[in-house]
Amino acid sequence: MTELLTTAVTRRRFLIGAGGAVMVMAAPSARAQFVAEGEARSAAMRAAIKAIVGENSLPQGRIKIELPPLVENGNAVPLSIAVESPMTDADHVKAIHVFTEKNPQPNVAVFQLGPRAGTADIQTRMRLADTQLVVAVAEMSDGSFWRDEVEVVVTLAACLEES
C-alpha cells in the first residue's frame, strides 16, 4: 500500500514537473513570435498611415468612427464614419481613409468626397481578422488631417476559414 502511494505521488509529481518544463520551454518562443507578428502588423498600419499623412500632424478630433465594441462575426462588421465639416467649396473633407492594425493588409477603404456631398457621413461593412484597433483618417481641403480610432473585440475572425 505504502509502496503504491509513493509510486502514484512520484508519477504525478513527474507529470506536473514535466508539463511545467514543456510550458516553460514552449511559451516564450510562441509568445515572442506572436508579439513580433503583432508589432510587424501595427508597423505596417503606421507605414500605411504615414504614406497618406506624410509629416503632417494627426490629431484626434473632427472625425468620429463607430463600430460595435464586441463583434461576433468579423466577416461583416458595420462601420460608420462622420466628419464635422461645413462641406463648402472652401472647407470640406477631401477623403476618408480607414486602416486596421491586424488584418493581413492595413488598408480597408478610401472614400473620396467633396463639397457636393453635403455631409461627410459614410457607412459600410468591413472584415476584421482579429481583436484590434481600427483607425479612420480624414483629409481636409485645407491640408490638415484628423483621426479617430476604436478598439474592437472580435470573437469569430474573418479571412481565416477555408472555403
Binding site: 466577416n75 461583416a76 462588421v77 486596421t100 488584418n103 493581413p104 493588409q105 488598408n107 480597408v108 477603404a109 478610401v110 472614400f111 473620396q112 468626397l113 456631398a117 459600410t124 461593412r125 468591413m126 472584415r127 476584421l128 474573418a158 479571412c159
Partner: peptide
Amino acid sequence: FRAEFFPAVS
C-alpha cells in the same frame, strides 16, 4: 463620390 476598396471590405 468615389470609393477605393481593399480586401478588408466585406
